[in-house]
């Protein structure tokens, strides 16, 4: 996967570059905003990591000019500012995600993967988790090699949870992703109950009053 990093702090840029290379990414690092904009056009990166406070051309301007030129590469903004207004401005201008400094490399890695998946579909057609094997193209789920019949919502819910392993997804987040309209109040619980019955009790963990997660 090719990453373009536009960050003016040399120490941070070097650190991110080293860490991402260790994790198997290809990475180009640019220190100036104006150079970053031309690099976005010249290099065909899979994901762009963009700092907002850049010399010569501000990060938000780099973003808006790139989007104006029709470039749709997913952009992850990293910034020292976390005020909601700036967050919204960044997302309005076409950023795909937002990470406030300082951050954990694991977190950055996870966000990059999520962005890539969203833009390119899954890296592989097959997903494995413990005794589960999922063929995403066919929407088929196997437990210990045996095909399990899942409803459409059940399958979507399972994939949402597996995509953010070890992270708790709140009921609101899950409902927003699964349904277009406000669902019945206990619809989500029913799906979770069914998934547990079909795939095992301890697959999905509950955080009482909050939501659900699958262990890492």
């Amino acid at each position: 996967m090719k990453i373009l990093l536009i960050e003016d702090d040399q120490l941070l840029a070097r650190g991110i570059t080293t860490s991402l290379k260790v994790r198997g990414y290809q990475i180009d690092s640019i220190l100036r905003g104006d150079h970053g904009l031309s690099a976005i056009q010249d290099l065909s990166a899979d994901v762009i990591i963009l700092d907002l406070n850049l010399p010569y051309l501000d990060g938000l301007q780099v973003l808006s000019q790139a989007r104006a030129k029709g470039i749709t590469t997913p952009v992850l903004i990293i910034t020292a500012r976390d005020a909601i207004a700036q967050r919204i401005q960044g997302l309005d201008l076409g950023a795909d995600d937002y990470l406030v400094k300082p951050f954990d490399m694991d977190e950055l890695d996870a966000r990059i993967r999520a962005l890539y998946r969203r833009a390119h579909g899954r890296c592989s057609d097959e997903l494995r988790y413990r005794e589960l094997r999922i063929i995403t193209s066919a929407r088929q789920v196997y437990l210990k090699g045996e095909l399990i019949e899942l409803g459409r919502r059940e399958y979507d819910l399972l994939l949402l949870l597996l995509d953010s392993k070890a992270r708790v997804l709140t009921r609101r987040q899950l409902e927003d992703s699964l349904y277009e309209e406000e669902p019945e109040s206990n619809a989500l619980e029913v799906h979770v109950h069914n998934l547990r019955k079909k795939l095992g009790r301890d697959l999905i963990n509950t955080v009482r009053g909050v939501g659900y997660f699958v262990a890492a």
Binding site: D9, L11, L12, G15, I16, T18, S19, I78, A80, V100, K101, P102, F103, D104, M105, D106
Partner: peptide
Amino acid sequence: RTPLAAMLVHLD
């Protein structure tokens, strides 16, 4: 925040 981020990233 930026040097802190650099610190964490290098620690990794």
